[in-house]
Simulated scan of single mutants.
Amino acid sequence: MSNRDNPYDTGAGEVNITFGGLNAGSDRSAAAGAGASQTAPQGTDVIKDVSTASFAADVIQESRRQPVLVDFWAPWCGPCKQLTPMLEKVVREARGRVKLAKLNIDEHPAIPGQLGIQSIPAVIAFQDGRPVDGFMGAIPESQVREFIGRLTAGDTGRIEEALAAAGQAREAGDSQTAVQIYSAVLEQDPEQVDALAGLADLLFEAGRTDEAKAVLDRVPEAKKGASAVAAVRARMALAEQVAELGDPAELERRLAANPADHQARFDLALIQNARGEREAAADSLLAIVKADRAWKDDAARTKLLELFEAWGMSDPVTLSARRKLSSLLFS
Score class of each variant (00 low, 15 high):
residue 282 A to S: 11
residue 294 A to I: 09
residue 301 R to F: 04
residue 316 P to D: 13
residue 308 F to R: 08
residue 267 D to C: 04
residue 313 M to P: 06
residue 296 K to V: 01
residue 296 K to D: 14
residue 328 L to G: 02
residue 295 W to M: 10
residue 299 A to Q: 13
residue 330 F to E: 15
residue 327 S to Q: 15
residue 288 I to P: 05
residue 297 D to F: 12
residue 309 E to P: 03
residue 323 R to P: 01
residue 324 K to W: 14
residue 273 N to F: 09
residue 269 A to N: 11
residue 295 W to P: 08
residue 291 A to R: 14
residue 279 E to C: 06
residue 286 L to F: 06
residue 329 L to W: 14
residue 311 W to E: 09
residue 319 L to E: 15
residue 282 A to P: 06
residue 313 M to V: 00
residue 325 L to C: 07
residue 276 G to Y: 03
residue 293 R to S: 10
residue 284 S to Q: 02
residue 318 T to V: 06
residue 287 A to V: 07
residue 295 W to D: 08
residue 320 S to C: 01
residue 295 W to L: 08
residue 275 R to V: 06
residue 315 D to Y: 00
residue 328 L to D: 07
residue 317 V to T: 13
residue 315 D to V: 00
residue 309 E to C: 02
residue 266 F to R: 09
residue 308 F to E: 10
residue 330 F to I: 05
residue 306 E to K: 02
residue 275 R to P: 02
residue 298 D to L: 01
residue 285 L to H: 04
residue 324 K to I: 06
residue 295 W to T: 11
residue 306 E to T: 07
residue 319 L to V: 15
residue 320 S to E: 15
residue 327 S to K: 15
residue 319 L to N: 15
residue 304 L to W: 06
residue 278 R to A: 10
residue 303 K to T: 04
residue 287 A to R: 13
residue 302 T to W: 00
residue 304 L to H: 07
residue 280 A to K: 14
residue 280 A to C: 05
residue 289 V to D: 03
residue 325 L to G: 08
residue 285 L to C: 04
residue 293 R to W: 12
residue 291 A to H: 12
residue 290 K to V: 05
residue 310 A to S: 13
residue 291 A to T: 10
residue 314 S to I: 01
residue 306 E to M: 03
residue 290 K to H: 10
residue 268 L to A: 03
residue 281 A to P: 06
residue 287 A to I: 06
residue 292 D to G: 07
residue 290 K to P: 06
residue 318 T to M: 06
residue 306 E to F: 00
residue 284 S to H: 02
residue 291 A to S: 14
residue 327 S to M: 09
residue 308 F to G: 09
residue 284 S to M: 01
residue 268 L to T: 11
residue 266 F to V: 08
residue 305 L to C: 04
residue 311 W to S: 12
residue 309 E to M: 08
residue 320 S to M: 10
residue 331 S to N: 15
residue 287 A to T: 11
residue 307 L to K: 01
residue 283 D to I: 00
residue 310 A to P: 00
residue 280 A to D: 13
residue 325 L to I: 08
residue 267 D to F: 00
